[in-house]
Write a protein that binds this DNA or RNA. Sequence first.
DNA 1: TTAAATCTACACTGAGTCAATAGACATTTT
DNA 2: AAAATGTCTATTGACTCAGTGTAGATTTAA
Lengths: 153, 153
Amino acid sequence: MKLSLRGEYALRALLVLGLNYKQSVLRIQTISQHQNIPKRFLEQILNDLKSAGVVESKRGVAGGYRLARPPADISLASVIRHIEGALAPVSCVSECFYEKCSCPDEARCAIRSVMKQARDAVVAIVEKLTVADLCERARELQELHANPVDFVI
Amino acid sequence: MKLSLRGEYALRALLVLGLNYKQSVLRIQTISQHQNIPKRFLEQILNDLKSAGVVESKRGVAGGYRLARPPADISLASVIRHIEGALAPVSCVSECFYEKCSCPDEARCAIRSVMKQARDAVVAIVEKLTVADLCERARELQELHANPVDFVI
DNA sequence: TTAAATCTACACTGAGTCAATAGACATTTT
DNA sequence: AAAATGTCTATTGACTCAGTGTAGATTTAA
Protein backbone atom coordinates (compact mmCIF):
# COMPACT_ATOMS: atom_id res chain seq x y z
CA MET A 1 0.00 0.00 0.00
CA LYS A 2 1.21 3.44 -0.90
CA LEU A 3 -0.86 6.53 -0.17
CA SER A 4 -0.90 9.39 -2.62
CA LEU A 5 -1.61 12.88 -1.35
CA ARG A 6 -5.18 12.37 -2.46
CA GLY A 7 -5.58 9.41 -0.12
CA GLU A 8 -3.83 11.13 2.73
CA TYR A 9 -6.06 14.20 2.36
CA ALA A 10 -9.13 11.97 2.31
CA LEU A 11 -8.20 10.38 5.63
CA ARG A 12 -7.33 13.72 7.19
CA ALA A 13 -10.67 15.15 6.11
CA LEU A 14 -12.55 12.13 7.45
CA LEU A 15 -10.77 12.48 10.75
CA VAL A 16 -11.96 16.07 11.07
CA LEU A 17 -15.48 15.10 10.04
CA GLY A 18 -15.37 12.23 12.52
CA LEU A 19 -14.41 14.51 15.38
CA ASN A 20 -17.37 16.67 14.36
CA TYR A 21 -19.83 13.80 14.02
CA LYS A 22 -23.45 14.43 15.09
CA GLN A 23 -22.92 18.15 14.77
CA SER A 24 -23.82 20.32 11.82
CA VAL A 25 -22.02 20.18 8.50
CA LEU A 26 -18.48 21.49 8.08
CA ARG A 27 -17.56 23.77 5.20
CA ILE A 28 -14.84 22.67 2.79
CA GLN A 29 -12.93 25.79 3.62
CA THR A 30 -12.93 25.02 7.32
CA ILE A 31 -11.46 21.56 6.75
CA SER A 32 -9.08 22.90 4.16
CA GLN A 33 -7.69 25.52 6.53
CA HIS A 34 -7.60 23.25 9.54
CA GLN A 35 -5.73 20.49 7.71
CA ASN A 36 -3.69 22.56 5.31
CA ILE A 37 -5.22 21.03 2.17
CA PRO A 38 -5.73 22.94 -1.10
CA LYS A 39 -9.40 23.83 -1.15
CA ARG A 40 -10.19 23.01 -4.77
CA PHE A 41 -8.44 19.68 -4.51
CA LEU A 42 -10.34 18.86 -1.34
CA GLU A 43 -13.58 19.61 -3.19
CA GLN A 44 -12.84 16.79 -5.62
CA ILE A 45 -11.91 14.40 -2.89
CA LEU A 46 -15.00 15.03 -0.78
CA ASN A 47 -17.15 14.68 -3.87
CA ASP A 48 -15.48 11.35 -4.51
CA LEU A 49 -16.13 10.25 -0.93
CA LYS A 50 -19.73 11.30 -1.36
CA SER A 51 -20.16 9.06 -4.38
CA ALA A 52 -18.77 6.26 -2.21
CA GLY A 53 -21.48 6.91 0.36
CA VAL A 54 -18.98 7.84 3.04
CA VAL A 55 -19.97 11.47 3.43
CA GLU A 56 -23.05 13.51 2.57
CA SER A 57 -23.36 17.16 1.68
CA LYS A 58 -25.65 20.08 2.15
CA ARG A 59 -25.63 22.80 -0.47
CA GLY A 60 -26.21 26.50 -0.27
CA VAL A 61 -25.10 29.22 2.01
CA ALA A 62 -24.96 27.18 5.21
CA GLY A 63 -23.79 24.07 3.38
CA GLY A 64 -20.93 21.68 3.91
CA TYR A 65 -20.10 18.04 4.54
CA ARG A 66 -20.67 15.52 7.28
CA LEU A 67 -20.20 11.76 7.64
CA ALA A 68 -22.99 9.75 6.06
CA ARG A 69 -22.53 6.87 8.52
CA PRO A 70 -21.32 6.43 12.11
CA PRO A 71 -17.51 6.73 12.29
CA ALA A 72 -17.26 3.18 13.64
CA ASP A 73 -18.86 1.87 10.44
CA ILE A 74 -16.25 3.39 8.13
CA SER A 75 -13.16 1.20 7.87
CA LEU A 76 -9.91 2.71 6.69
CA ALA A 77 -9.54 -0.18 4.26
CA SER A 78 -12.76 0.69 2.45
CA VAL A 79 -11.78 4.33 2.14
CA ILE A 80 -8.27 3.62 0.91
CA ARG A 81 -9.52 1.01 -1.55
CA HIS A 82 -11.98 3.52 -2.97
CA ILE A 83 -9.44 6.31 -3.33
CA GLU A 84 -6.26 4.42 -4.13
CA GLY A 85 -7.27 0.99 -5.34
CA ALA A 86 -5.46 -2.15 -4.25
CA LEU A 87 -3.85 -2.43 -0.83
CA ALA A 88 -1.52 -5.21 -2.00
CA PRO A 89 2.07 -4.44 -3.08
CA VAL A 90 1.52 -6.29 -6.36
CA SER A 91 -1.84 -6.82 -8.00
CA CYS A 92 -1.42 -10.59 -8.36
CA VAL A 93 -1.98 -10.93 -4.59
CA SER A 94 -4.84 -8.45 -4.37
CA GLU A 95 -8.21 -9.81 -3.33
CA CYS A 96 -10.29 -6.91 -4.62
CA PHE A 97 -8.19 -5.81 -7.59
CA TYR A 98 -6.55 -9.02 -8.76
CA GLU A 99 -4.60 -8.95 -12.00
CA LYS A 100 -2.58 -11.75 -13.49
CA CYS A 101 1.14 -11.11 -13.53
CA SER A 102 3.77 -12.09 -16.07
CA CYS A 103 5.61 -14.67 -14.00
CA PRO A 104 5.90 -18.18 -15.44
CA ASP A 105 3.87 -19.92 -12.72
CA GLU A 106 1.81 -17.92 -10.27
CA ALA A 107 0.98 -20.89 -8.07
CA ARG A 108 4.66 -21.65 -7.47
CA CYS A 109 5.94 -18.06 -7.33
CA ALA A 110 8.02 -17.48 -4.21
CA ILE A 111 7.83 -13.71 -4.57
CA ARG A 112 4.08 -13.86 -4.75
CA SER A 113 4.05 -15.81 -1.51
CA VAL A 114 6.11 -13.13 0.23
CA MET A 115 3.96 -10.36 -1.17
CA LYS A 116 0.83 -12.12 0.01
CA GLN A 117 2.28 -12.14 3.51
CA ALA A 118 2.93 -8.39 3.30
CA ARG A 119 -0.55 -7.75 1.96
CA ASP A 120 -2.19 -9.71 4.75
CA ALA A 121 -0.24 -7.83 7.39
CA VAL A 122 -1.33 -4.45 6.06
CA VAL A 123 -4.92 -5.49 5.43
CA ALA A 124 -5.23 -6.83 8.97
CA ILE A 125 -4.41 -3.37 10.25
CA VAL A 126 -6.52 -1.14 8.03
CA GLU A 127 -9.47 -3.51 7.81
CA LYS A 128 -9.84 -3.49 11.58
CA LEU A 129 -9.42 0.26 12.10
CA THR A 130 -12.27 2.70 11.54
CA VAL A 131 -12.69 6.44 11.48
CA ALA A 132 -13.88 6.12 15.10
CA ASP A 133 -10.55 4.53 16.08
CA LEU A 134 -8.78 7.33 14.27
CA CYS A 135 -10.70 9.91 16.30
CA GLU A 136 -9.99 8.10 19.53
CA ARG A 137 -6.32 7.93 18.72
CA ALA A 138 -6.30 11.62 17.85
CA ARG A 139 -7.83 12.46 21.21
CA GLU A 140 -5.28 10.29 23.02
CA LEU A 141 -2.41 11.98 21.22
CA GLN A 142 -3.89 15.32 22.11
CA GLU A 143 -4.07 14.40 25.81
CA LEU A 144 -0.59 12.99 25.79
CA HIS A 145 0.77 16.23 24.49
CA ALA A 146 -1.28 18.47 26.75
CA ASN A 147 -0.21 16.62 29.93
CA PRO A 148 3.15 15.13 29.08
CA VAL A 149 4.02 12.50 31.67
CA ASP A 150 7.60 12.62 32.81
CA PHE A 151 8.98 9.09 32.99
CA VAL A 152 12.38 10.13 34.24
CA ILE A 153 12.64 9.44 37.99
CA MET B 1 5.00 -0.49 -0.09
CA LYS B 2 4.00 -0.81 -3.72
CA LEU B 3 6.16 -2.68 -6.21
CA SER B 4 6.47 -1.40 -9.75
CA LEU B 5 7.25 -3.84 -12.53
CA ARG B 6 10.85 -2.79 -12.19
CA GLY B 7 10.97 -3.94 -8.59
CA GLU B 8 9.12 -7.14 -9.31
CA TYR B 9 11.50 -7.97 -12.16
CA ALA B 10 14.47 -7.27 -9.90
CA LEU B 11 13.24 -9.75 -7.31
CA ARG B 12 12.43 -12.36 -9.94
CA ALA B 13 15.91 -12.01 -11.43
CA LEU B 14 17.55 -12.26 -8.02
CA LEU B 15 15.59 -15.40 -7.30
CA VAL B 16 16.92 -17.03 -10.46
CA LEU B 17 20.45 -15.87 -9.69
CA GLY B 18 20.06 -17.16 -6.14
CA LEU B 19 19.03 -20.60 -7.33
CA ASN B 20 22.15 -20.54 -9.50
CA TYR B 21 24.50 -19.31 -6.79
CA LYS B 22 28.06 -20.69 -6.75
CA GLN B 23 27.73 -21.68 -10.37
CA SER B 24 28.91 -19.72 -13.38
CA VAL B 25 27.29 -16.51 -14.54
CA LEU B 26 23.85 -16.44 -16.12
CA ARG B 27 23.18 -14.55 -19.32
CA ILE B 28 20.58 -11.78 -19.34
CA GLN B 29 18.77 -13.58 -22.08
CA THR B 30 18.50 -16.77 -20.04
CA ILE B 31 16.93 -14.93 -17.12
CA SER B 32 14.77 -12.89 -19.44
CA GLN B 33 13.36 -15.98 -21.15
CA HIS B 34 12.98 -17.96 -17.97
CA GLN B 35 11.11 -15.19 -16.18
CA ASN B 36 9.32 -13.61 -19.08
CA ILE B 37 10.96 -10.21 -18.66
CA PRO B 38 11.75 -7.84 -21.58
CA LYS B 39 15.46 -8.27 -22.18
CA ARG B 40 16.42 -4.63 -22.64
CA PHE B 41 14.52 -3.63 -19.54
CA LEU B 42 16.19 -6.37 -17.54
CA GLU B 43 19.58 -5.06 -18.67
CA GLN B 44 18.87 -1.75 -16.98
CA ILE B 45 17.66 -3.40 -13.82
CA LEU B 46 20.65 -5.72 -13.47
CA ASN B 47 22.96 -2.80 -14.09
CA ASP B 48 21.20 -0.95 -11.33
CA LEU B 49 21.58 -3.92 -8.98
CA LYS B 50 25.24 -4.05 -9.88
CA SER B 51 25.74 -0.45 -8.84
CA ALA B 52 24.10 -1.41 -5.55
CA GLY B 53 26.67 -4.16 -5.07
CA VAL B 54 24.05 -6.90 -5.15
CA VAL B 55 25.18 -8.60 -8.34
CA GLU B 56 28.40 -8.64 -10.35
CA SER B 57 28.92 -9.10 -14.05
CA LYS B 58 31.29 -10.71 -16.46
CA ARG B 59 31.54 -9.25 -19.92
CA GLY B 60 32.23 -10.79 -23.24
CA VAL B 61 31.07 -13.82 -25.07
CA ALA B 62 30.69 -16.08 -22.04
CA GLY B 63 29.53 -13.19 -19.86
CA GLY B 64 26.54 -12.71 -17.63
CA TYR B 65 25.51 -11.97 -14.08
CA ARG B 66 25.82 -13.64 -10.70
CA LEU B 67 25.16 -12.63 -7.11
CA ALA B 68 27.96 -10.56 -5.60
CA ARG B 69 27.22 -11.83 -2.08
CA PRO B 70 25.77 -14.95 -0.49
CA PRO B 71 21.98 -15.09 -0.94
CA ALA B 72 21.50 -15.07 2.83
CA ASP B 73 23.22 -11.68 3.03
CA ILE B 74 20.83 -9.96 0.63
CA SER B 75 17.67 -8.81 2.37
CA LEU B 76 14.57 -8.10 0.34
CA ALA B 77 14.21 -4.79 2.16
CA SER B 78 17.58 -3.55 0.91
CA VAL B 79 16.78 -4.52 -2.66
CA ILE B 80 13.32 -2.98 -2.65
CA ARG B 81 14.62 0.19 -1.00
CA HIS B 82 17.27 0.54 -3.68
CA ILE B 83 14.89 -0.01 -6.58
CA GLU B 84 11.68 1.55 -5.31
CA GLY B 85 12.61 3.84 -2.46
CA ALA B 86 10.60 4.01 0.76
CA LEU B 87 8.77 0.99 2.13
CA ALA B 88 6.40 3.17 4.16
CA PRO B 89 2.93 4.05 2.85
CA VAL B 90 3.61 7.75 3.45
CA SER B 91 7.03 9.31 3.58
CA CYS B 92 6.47 11.01 6.94
CA VAL B 93 6.78 7.59 8.63
CA SER B 94 9.73 6.39 6.56
CA GLU B 95 12.98 5.74 8.42
CA CYS B 96 15.25 5.83 5.36
CA PHE B 97 13.38 8.31 3.17
CA TYR B 98 11.68 10.61 5.64
CA GLU B 99 9.96 13.70 4.33
CA LYS B 100 7.91 16.16 6.29
CA CYS B 101 4.22 16.11 5.46
CA SER B 102 1.73 18.96 5.31
CA CYS B 103 -0.35 18.02 8.33
CA PRO B 104 -0.69 20.63 11.08
CA ASP B 105 1.08 18.62 13.79
CA GLU B 106 3.06 15.52 12.92
CA ALA B 107 3.61 14.50 16.54
CA ARG B 108 -0.11 14.36 17.21
CA CYS B 109 -1.25 13.02 13.83
CA ALA B 110 -3.48 9.98 14.25
CA ILE B 111 -3.12 8.98 10.62
CA ARG B 112 0.62 9.03 10.93
CA SER B 113 0.37 6.70 13.90
CA VAL B 114 -1.69 4.22 11.87
CA MET B 115 0.67 4.46 8.92
CA LYS B 116 3.62 3.83 11.17
CA GLN B 117 1.97 0.63 12.32
CA ALA B 118 1.49 -0.47 8.71
CA ARG B 119 5.07 0.41 7.85
CA ASP B 120 6.45 -1.57 10.79
CA ALA B 121 4.42 -4.62 9.82
CA VAL B 122 5.75 -4.62 6.27
CA VAL B 123 9.30 -3.81 7.22
CA ALA B 124 9.34 -6.66 9.75
CA ILE B 125 8.59 -9.05 6.91
CA VAL B 126 10.93 -7.85 4.19
CA GLU B 127 13.78 -6.93 6.50
CA LYS B 128 13.92 -10.47 7.83
CA LEU B 129 13.63 -12.26 4.50
CA THR B 130 16.62 -12.73 2.21
CA VAL B 131 17.21 -14.03 -1.28
CA ALA B 132 18.15 -17.33 0.37
CA ASP B 133 14.71 -17.54 1.97
CA LEU B 134 13.18 -16.77 -1.38
CA CYS B 135 15.07 -19.67 -2.95
CA GLU B 136 14.08 -22.01 -0.19
CA ARG B 137 10.47 -21.03 -0.53
CA ALA B 138 10.66 -21.54 -4.28
CA ARG B 139 12.01 -25.04 -3.78
CA GLU B 140 9.27 -25.83 -1.27
CA LEU B 141 6.59 -24.65 -3.66
CA GLN B 142 8.17 -26.74 -6.38
CA GLU B 143 8.09 -29.87 -4.18
CA LEU B 144 4.54 -29.18 -3.09
CA HIS B 145 3.41 -29.08 -6.66
CA ALA B 146 5.41 -32.08 -7.78
CA ASN B 147 4.05 -34.32 -4.98
CA PRO B 148 0.65 -32.89 -4.15
CA VAL B 149 -0.58 -34.34 -0.88
CA ASP B 150 -4.22 -35.38 -0.98
CA PHE B 151 -5.92 -34.33 2.24
CA VAL B 152 -9.30 -35.75 1.32
CA ILE B 153 -9.85 -39.05 3.17
C1' DT C 1 43.37 -10.75 -35.64
C1' DT C 2 38.85 -10.84 -36.63
C1' DA C 3 34.04 -11.99 -35.55
C1' DA C 4 30.57 -12.84 -32.49
C1' DA C 5 28.47 -12.52 -28.22
C1' DT C 6 27.84 -10.27 -24.47
C1' DC C 7 27.58 -6.20 -21.13
C1' DT C 8 27.52 -0.70 -20.72
C1' DA C 9 25.89 3.84 -21.23
C1' DC C 10 22.92 7.34 -22.33
C1' DA C 11 19.21 9.29 -24.53
C1' DC C 12 14.54 9.16 -25.99
C1' DT C 13 9.54 8.30 -26.15
C1' DG C 14 4.62 7.43 -25.55
C1' DA C 15 1.32 6.51 -22.24
C1' DG C 16 -0.30 7.33 -18.09
C1' DT C 17 -0.76 9.44 -13.31
C1' DC C 18 -0.65 13.13 -9.86
C1' DA C 19 -1.82 17.33 -7.93
C1' DA C 20 -3.76 20.65 -8.63
C1' DT C 21 -6.38 24.82 -11.19
C1' DA C 22 -10.12 26.97 -14.06
C1' DG C 23 -14.55 28.15 -15.15
C1' DA C 24 -19.25 27.61 -15.47
C1' DC C 25 -23.22 26.13 -13.04
C1' DA C 26 -26.76 24.71 -9.36
C1' DT C 27 -28.73 25.25 -4.81
C1' DT C 28 -29.97 27.34 -0.63
C1' DT C 29 -30.45 31.00 2.80
C1' DT C 30 -30.99 35.75 3.97
C1' DA D 1 -32.01 39.50 -5.80
C1' DA D 2 -27.47 38.66 -3.71
C1' DA D 3 -24.21 36.03 -1.51
C1' DA D 4 -22.29 31.84 -0.06
C1' DT D 5 -21.79 27.54 -0.72
C1' DG D 6 -21.42 22.78 -3.22
C1' DT D 7 -21.20 20.29 -8.32
C1' DC D 8 -19.31 19.13 -12.53
C1' DT D 9 -16.22 18.83 -16.37
C1' DA D 10 -12.11 19.95 -18.46
C1' DT D 11 -7.33 21.23 -18.61
C1' DT D 12 -2.61 21.71 -17.30
C1' DG D 13 2.31 20.96 -16.17
C1' DA D 14 5.32 18.05 -13.99
C1' DC D 15 6.49 13.72 -13.32
C1' DT D 16 7.01 8.57 -13.53
C1' DC D 17 6.87 4.13 -15.81
C1' DA D 18 8.04 0.76 -19.00
C1' DG D 19 10.23 0.13 -22.56
C1' DT D 20 13.22 1.16 -27.21
C1' DG D 21 17.13 2.92 -29.89
C1' DT D 22 21.68 3.54 -30.86
C1' DA D 23 26.34 3.37 -30.24
C1' DG D 24 29.87 1.60 -27.98
C1' DA D 25 33.35 -1.48 -24.83
C1' DT D 26 35.01 -5.97 -23.50
C1' DT D 27 35.97 -10.62 -23.80
C1' DT D 28 36.35 -15.21 -25.85
C1' DA D 29 36.76 -18.35 -29.60
C1' DA D 30 37.79 -19.34 -34.40
